[in-house]
């Protein structure tokens, strides 16, 4: 199993295409960082327009590395599923297209193990994308913009987090994002089993994610309690929950607290169930599949 995983990782990371994702993430992050470096204040003024009437807003302090990282994650995590699908959707279909799938399957290796190795490899790729993102978005921003307390805007409230209370939240958020993106990987992986070239699963994965995200974000009461809680896309943004603190009785944010941890854990459980469902289905289908490519 370990050898299979090594081989799958070797194949992923020897492909030039793999690095497109890393380059794409780097350029997106650098563009956001540059924009905020030079015009961060206007962006903040827009964000803070609701409170700048009643408060003195120290924009130059608020625009720090932690906030920049948050803005980057907010913007990027919506697009990264595309990059994840690019590799995960290729795992089986790409080999079918190249004609190497039949060589793989005639090795003395069980198809289940082969599939598990392939999925694990896609998850590792996803995690590496996130580590890369964390490195650039968080570390680089901390270097460029310095650190301070973080003030983030939610729909109807602003959250302030003490600077010593932030890093663990980022680790938790990245951990959660890894699971969320692995769900996308699992979906792309499943669709990959049905196709003989990788365009199909990649495009369908992205389409499904987009359609479901729109459904998740629409404020239509009809969907709110019926479909929304069951869509995995409704739960993909739960990483943000780690940045929301509990409030004490007199309205203070409690350092080190998380507003609604049970909700985040529930979301996590939903995502994990989806991963299990997608991967199991992929394996069952692949075990019975006639390899005709």
């Amino acid at each position: 199993m370990w050898i299979l995983l090594q081989i799958e990782l070797f194949k992923i990371f020897r492909r030039p295409r793999t690095y497109i994702s890393f380059a794409a993430i780097a350029s997106m992050i650098l563009i956001i960082q540059l924009g905020l470096k030079f015009d961060g204040k206007s962006y903040l003024q827009l964000l803070m327009s609701g409170i700048s009437d009643s408060f003195y807003v120290p924009y130059e302090l608020i625009l720090n590395g932690y906030l920049v990282a948050f803005v980057i994650l907010n913007t990027l995590l919506i697009h990264v599923p595309l990059l994840v699908a690019l590799v995960a959707g290729d795992m089986v279909a790409g080999e079918a297209n190249m004609g190497t799938l039949r060589l793989l399957v005639t090795r003395p290796v069980s198809r289940t193990r082969l599939m598990l190795a392939k999925f694990t490899a896609s998850v590792i790729y996803t995690v590496m994308l996130l580590v890369w993102m964390a490195f650039l978005a968080l570390l680089l921003s901390m270097l460029f913009f310095g650190t301070n307390d973080m003030i983030i805007a939610r729909n109807d409230v602003m959250e302030q987090i003490g600077r010593n209370d932030i890093l663990w939240r980022y680790f938790a958020a990245f951990g959660y994002a890894a699971v969320a993106l692995s769900t996308v990987a699992a979906l792309a992986f499943l669709l990959s089993v049905f196709a003989e070239n990788s365009i199909g699963p990649i495009v369908s994965t992205i389409s499904i994610v987009i359609v479901l995200t729109i459904l998740s974000e629409m404020k239509i009461p009809l969907y709110d309690n019926t479909v929304k809680p069951y869509l995995f896309t409704s739960h993909m943004l739960a990483w943000k929950g780690f940045f929301y603190s509990k409030a004490s009785g007199d309205g203070q944010a409690i350092p080190g607290s998380v507003e609604n941890l049970p909700a985040i854990l529930r979301s996590l459980a939903v995502l994990l169930s989806y991963i299990a469902l997608f991967v199991t289905t992929a394996i069952v289908v692949f075990r019975k599949k006639d390899i005709l490519s």
Binding site: L47, S49, N74, A153, N260
Partner: peptide, 20 residues
């Protein structure tokens, strides 16, 4: 002091709806 209610400008962010 008196404050106006605050609302994030639309389209800035997708918030996480935890169902509460």
């Amino acid at each position: 002091f008196n404050t106006k209610d605050y609302k994030l400008p639309k389209g800035i962010t997708f918030d996480y709806d935890d169902g509460s």
